[in-house]
């Protein structure tokens, strides 16, 4: 039995400890905001926060997350005004999404980036966000939204 906290709720997992957190979230808990894009850690669709840091849920076996605090896109905005994290607000103000499928991962990654680097340069954004693919090509708006949220994000 593996214990972990997901979006503030204690969970006990008794399946295959090697199962990536991604599939526990999606198939086990119905938290489908975290997306499957590549399964090998190279697209960023599945980014969640583990103890505040961005991790790829497709590459994180549940056993590795034992005892951790996991936050997914569904709970990123909790405690923020209007239930929206400043990064989510910036995303909306900039009309970033097209199909939207990559955006949960992008937002989670951007929120973590701004936490460690509150005022990122273009180079910081390149580096921090290069692991997240958007096939629709919304990168310019992602960059704009990150800059707008800079300083506000916590």
């Amino acid at each position: 039995m593996i214990q972990l906290t997901i979006n503030g709720v204690r969970q006990s997992f008794d399946g295959d400890p090697e199962m990536p957190l991604l599939w526990y979230l999606r198939d086990g808990l119905g938290l489908t905001g975290t997306k499957f894009g590549c399964g090998i850690g190279v697209c960023g669709s599945c980014v969640v926060h583990q103890n505040g840091a961005a991790v790829r849920a497709c590459m994180t076996p549940v056993r590795v997350a034992a005892g951790a605090e996991i936050v997914t896109i569904e709970a990123l905005g909790s405690g923020h005004e209007g239930g929206l994290h400043p990064v989510q607000k910036a995303w909306m103000a900039h009309n970033v999404p097209q199909c939207g499928y990559c955006q949960a991962g992008q937002i989670m990654q951007a929120a973590a980036l701004l936490k460690s680097t509150p005022h990122p340069t273009d180079a910081d954004i390149d580096q921090g966000m290069a692991g997240n693919i958007c096939r629709c090509g919304t990168y310019q708006r992602i960059r704009g939204a990150i800059k707008a949220a800079a300083g506000e994000a916590v």
Partner: peptide, 16 residues
């Protein structure tokens, strides 16, 4: 777009 907030909060429903 109509689904903007749902997309940004992980509520939008895709085939996946």
């Amino acid at each position: 777009i109509f689904d903007l907030q749902d997309i940004c909060t992980g509520k939008a429903g895709y085939g996946m």
